[in-house]
Nucleic acid binder design. Structure first.
Lengths: 346, 346
DNA sequence: CAGCGACATGACAGCGCTATCATCACCCTT
DNA sequence: AAGGGTGATGATAGCGCTGTCATGTCGCTG
């Protein structure tokens, strides 16, 4: 059977507690003793038993990622998971995935239930959970630590996690579109509960304002983060009497939907229509023409959020809100505005 | 503080052990007692402590998914994860993710290390791990239970997991291509360590043989499962003196690469070139033209593999190898072969 | 009606750790 | 030299469950 801490203690000629000190990097262990313990542990191929550790130490060494179930297989989430796993690895923590249905009105209960059942030492929340004031307040009440990714600022008690200036990023993109000569620039807005919707929409307006282009409300349609939402939004916009020459979609998936619909109609991209996405998911490189978008460092965001959460678990007061940079990725889906003010089929 | 099993026992007027029996669905508990215990537990909002359970019961209630790190963010893996989580949920198990670098020669050690550290009750292996004879033998030696997804048949001791007839699926696709009039059909083969490479390649040959089309070795190129592999493969094939009129790529990602390269060259799809993928990942629907491919029910595969693994954990001898169905998804990337035998730029 | 098996239940040890507090050696201060 | 601080270490009591085995209670058989 596996070696236990007692065996290591005996082999090293010290007490169990000293072995425990070494493994938990507690202070007040002499260098000599530490080396003895380490070599004994190595000789016995000792690995602490996580369940015993958790039980005795009253923590689970587990953090939990809470995200919206329908987005469970999105590359945005996947990248965050990869980053989170990397951070956990480094700290000998485990990561647990909690895809929950946000649209289910009981999602606060669902989170609480999940906490009661698995007792994670902390949570990572992504939108729309990160933006849910009721949830954050409840977690604060319960004393549960959490980090957020891309939360609307200043909602939670503890400002821990990562944030990216989506508003400025969106404005930058609009500026780029304006630079290409576009004047009729449409926006397909994201789903309401996501902070991203508000930011990207605000950035869109900022961009137009800066270019002194009046906002035309018919060019702003409600959409969502899905491919289908992009198709539907594109239909609405391209059917307008005076359709846009550029469309800024809520994210890459919906931008793919826009391109799909435009190409179905026989339009050429970017000749007849420029398309802008957001997120820089793998598919934005794989579609043709490849998609101009805003790169979010999702993997880093996952890693950083986990690191900050772990810091705050280690010592109260630790952990910060880290701003991560975005980057415009100009690809092939955008180009000069057509000479005629409206996009025409071939 | 949280209620403990002792509190429930006291409230219900029974012993701890009886409460334990109820929660673990052990036999020999009277209906009356069960109800008493259940209502007491409900009243106290009792949730068993997983660490204590694991420690006392000597199992972790944890299963671990082992997959190749570079594919960490692929939607294939993501869908499997979603299915696996669903199965775990139902059985009050947790799922743990172990992205490991397969190309690292020590991956057997890495798996062993992961087992030593986290002590999962079982593993789910996907290719290329599922096809690694050395790893499977070692796991058999160690007495570690595992389920495989799409493993080459008859390698491991325990035949548990899911399997899909990729060979037949590939042959069906070739038959479809032949039906469309294609005669020069190329294949970009997958990465060597994956069983899928052999199956799909064999199915490709089967399909040609059945149509009495001789195999032209210049139409088979080594590739891989990545977008870039598709681009490189497409370049080789489209630069041939007599290029193919249809390309069957190793999977959807590489098929996207093929389409990308063809469209870059000004070719029209499917007019000048038909493209076939494999897997039916989300991007196969999102690209334009949408991709003809073989649908693999990845989510079901993840769920079923986990279910079978859990069955084998519950009782030795439980768990089976379940065959899952595939489905051809004919979309827009394929069409009749061009009249001229070679594809020409516009 | 004794005897037996099948079911129902409980007492208690112990899983492998960590937390707490005690102890001890050592050095510095006054 | 006594007193006191500091760093290093150990003894021991749990953490909250489950496994084992003992015990009790039926109903049935011969």
């Amino acid at each position: 059977m596996r070696a236990r801490i007692e065996d290591v203690a005996e082999t090293a000629g010290v007490s169990m507690k000293t072995v425990s000190r070494v493994f938990n990097r507690e202070p007040n262990v002499s260098e000599k003793t530490r080396l003895k313990v380490e070599s004994a542990a190595k000789a016995l191929n000792y690995r602490p038993n996580p369940s015993a550790r958790s039980l005795a130490g009253n923590r689970s060494y587990l953090i939990s990622l809470v995200y919206d179930d329908p987005a469970a297989a999105s590359s945005y989430i996947m990248e965050i998971i990869v980053g989170m796993l990397a951070a956990c690895e480094d700290s000998h923590y485990s990561a647990m995935l909690r895809p929950l249905e946000y649209s289910n009105s009981d999602h606060v209960d669902a989170v609480e239930e999940s906490i009661a059942q698995f007792r994670p030492d902390g949570l990572i929340l992504v939108p729309p959970f990160a933006d849910d004031l009721r949830l954050l307040r409840r977690l604060d009440e319960l004393g549960v630590r959490y980090a957020t990714i891309s939360a609307r600022a200043k909602l939670g008690l503890a400002q821990i996690g990562t944030i990216l200036d989506e508003r400025k990023a969106a404005a930058d993109m609009i500026a780029h579109a304006v630079g290409l000569g576009h004047r009729r620039i449409a926006h397909i807005a994201g789903p309401a509960p996501h902070g991203g919707r508000a930011w990207r929409l605000a950035g869109y307006r900022d961009g137009l304002r800066k270019a002194a282009i009046p906002v035309d409300d018919s060019l702003i349609v409600d959409g969502g983060f899905s491919f289908e939402a992009g198709i539907i939004g594109a239909r609405t916009l391209l059917d307008l009497a005076e359709p846009p020459t550029a469309i800024f979609a809520a994210n890459d998936d919906s931008a793919c939907g826009v391109m799909h619909e435009a190409l179905e109609r026989g339009m050429a991209i970017p000749r007849d229509l420029s398309v802008f996405g957001f997120d820089d998911t793998p598919s934005s490189r794989q579609v043709w023409p490849s998609l101009t978008t805003v790169h979010q460092p999702c993997r880093d965001m996952g890693r950083i959020a986990a690191e900050q959460l772990l810091a705050s678990i280690r010592d109260t007061g630790g952990g910060q809100l880290i701003r991560v940079p975005y980057e415009l990725r100009i690809r092939q889906s955008t180009g000069p505005a057509p000479v005629h003010s409206s996009a025409k089929p071939i």
